[in-house]
């Protein structure tokens, strides 16, 4: 596999320039909402581990330094272009 990732600023680049940043789970609930250990654990540690298309965060470490999300198929390890992902 040889992932190519499209950075919104730098364009399509070698995946090893980037760092993975987790499944997109939406903004972190505020502290009050995380009072219960279950809710806290659910947001912080639990993953869906989807086999297929998922939205996920990436950081362009050896590049512009942006955090952004892409859609990627975790079975083929290929980025799904925006329009195919329905965005």
């Amino acid at each position: 596999m040889a992932l190519t990732i499209t950075c919104p600023i730098c364009g399509a680049r070698n995946g090893y320039e980037f760092r993975y940043g987790g499944e997109e789970k939406g903004p972190k609930p505020d502290e009050a909402a995380l009072r219960s250990p279950e809710a806290w654990c659910d947001y912080i540690h639990f993953n869906r581990c989807k086999a297929g298309a998922q939205e996920e965060w990436w950081f362009h470490r050896d590049g512009c330094g942006a955090w952004f999300t892409i859609h990627r198929d975790t079975v083929t390890n290929r980025e799904i272009p925006g329009k195919e992902a329905g965005i």
Partner: peptide, 11 residues
């Protein structure tokens, strides 16, 4: 560090 700070303010 920069990446980490950006991560926690990404939204």
């Amino acid at each position: 560090s920069a990446e980490w700070i950006r991560y926690h303010t990404r939204y």
